[in-house]
Design a protein around this nucleic acid. Structure first.
Lengths: 207, 207
DNA sequence: CAATACAAACCGACTAGTCGGTATTAACTT
DNA sequence: AAGTTAATACCGACTAGTCGGTTTGTATTG
C-alpha cells in the first residue's frame, strides 16, 4: 500500500466534515478548521475560494457518490424487486460509511449560496428519480401494487432511509445490516403484489 | 370571535418561525426580525432573554403539541391497530399545519444551547416512546409481527413521517390526506400479522 | 409616581476574507 | 550535476464588517 501524502485540501475536507457534523457549519470557524489540522488560513484560502465552496465540495462528493452507487445497483440487476433490494442495500451502506457527510448534506444545505445549491438540488433529484423509476417499472410489471402512487411510495422509502442519519449510531446496539434487513422486509411487504410475493420472500426476514 | 390584539411576543414568534424556516436561524438576525414586524430591538429583548430563548420557545411549542396530540390519539383508542392509525393520522395532520415549526425543529435544534436542548431532546424521546409503546403492545397481542425489532420499526415509521417536512408542499399536487392514507397502508401491510390483517384492511387503500 | 412596554443609539466580540511575504517544488539552462 | 528561474503551496497578522446584546430614553398605564 503506497503511503500517499495527503494534500492539504483533502485534510481540510476530512476535518471539516467531522467538525461541521459535530457543531454545525456556522459554529465552526475557518480558524478552527485550520487550527484543528495544524494549518493556516492562507493555506485554506489557497485551496478554496470561500468557506462556502468548501461546504459545496463536501456536498458534491457525497451526492455524486450516492448517485453513482444507485445507478450501479440499478444496472447490475434487471427486475424491479432485485433492483429495489440492491438499492436499499447500497444506500444504507453508504449512509453507514458517510454518516458525517450526510449529516452535513441534510443539515447545512441551506447554507449553500444559490450558485452551488442549484447544482446540488439537481443531483439530489437525480438520485430520487433513479429510485422512483424502479418503483414505476415495478408497477408496470405488476410486481408492485399499482394502487399506491409511486411518488409517495418513493418518498416514504427515501424518508425511512434518510432518517437513519438522525438516530443510527455505529456504536449502538443495532448494526446497519439488521436495519437494512428490516427496512427491506417492510418495504417489500408494503408494496409487492401478491402474485410477485414469491420472488420477494427470499429477501425477507424469516418469521 | 373576539379580535384579541396580538402581543408583541406572539408577533415575534410568528414572524421568526417563518423567517427561520426560510433562511435558517443563523441567517436571520434579530434586527431583521424586528424590522419585519415593525418593532424594535428593545422590544425584542424585553420579551426574550436571548435569541436562543426564542428558538427554544418555538421548539417547545411544537414538540409539546405533538406529544399532546399523540397521547390523545393513544388514549382515544384501545387496540394497537386503531391506535397506530390514529397516531399516523394525527402526526401527518400536525405536520401539515406546523410545517414551518417542524422545519425549524429539525434543522435548527443544534443551535440550541445545552440548557434548552436537554429539555427538548427529552420531549422528543417522549414522543417516540409513545409510538414505540403502540408497536410493542401490538407485538405482545400478536397484531404486529414479532420478528421485526420494534425499535427499528418505530424509527422506520418516524422517518417516513418526519421526512415529509422536507418534500411536502401544500401547494403541490398531493394532499396530506392522500399521503397519510398511503403511509398507513404501507405501514399496516409491513407489520400487521396475517391473523390480524382482518382488522387492518379497513384502513387500507382499496386495490 | 412607579412599573411596564417599547424605541433607538450604541458597544464589543467575533469572523470571513485579504495581503504581503516565505518555503518548497518543478523546469530549464549550461 | 549544479545553478537559475519561475511557479506553486502555504503562512499569519491584519481588517472591515456584522450581529447579539446593552444602555439610555420615552410614552403609557394603573
Amino acid at each position: 500500500m503506497p503511503m500517499v501524502k495527503k494534500t492539504l485540501k483533502q485534510r481540510i475536507v476530512d476535518a471539516s466534515v467531522v467538525l461541521f457534523q459535530e457543531d454545525g457549519y456556522h459554529n465552526v470557524t475557518v480558524d478552527r478548521i485550520v487550527e484543528y489540522i495544524g494549518a493556516s488560513k492562507g493555506g485554506f484560502y489557497h485551496n478554496f475560494k470561500s468557506k462556502d465552496e468548501l461546504l459545496y465540495e463536501i456536498h458534491d462528493v457525497f451526492i455524486s457518490y450516492v448517485i453513482k452507487q444507485s445507478q450501479e445497483a440499478y444496472d447490475k440487476y434487471d427486475t424491479p424487486i432485485t433492483r429495489l433490494c440492491a438499492m436499499l442495500q447500497t444506500l444504507t451502506q453508504v449512509f453507514d460509511m458517510y454518516q458525517a457527510h450526510i449529516t452535513v448534506f441534510y443539515e447545512e444545505s441551506r447554507s449553500l449560496p444559490e450558485e452551488y445549491s442549484e447544482i446540488i438540488h439537481k443531483k439530489r433529484d437525480q438520485y430520487r428519480d433513479i429510485l422512483q423509476k424502479v418503483i414505476e417499472d415495478g408497477q408496470q410489471t405488476k410486481d408492485f401494487r399499482t394502487e399506491l402512487p409511486c411518488t409517495i411510495v418513493t418518498m416514504a422509502i427515501v424518508g425511512m432511509i434518510n432518517w437513519t442519519y438522525k438516530w443510527f449510531k455505529q456504536s449502538g446496539p443495532l448494526t446497519m445490516e439488521e436495519i437494512t434487513e428490516v427496512f427491506t422486509d417492510m418495504v417489500l411487504r408494503a408494496i409487492v403484489t401478491e402474485q410477485a410475493m414469491e420472488e420477494a420472500v427470499q429477501f425477507m426476514v424469516k418469521g
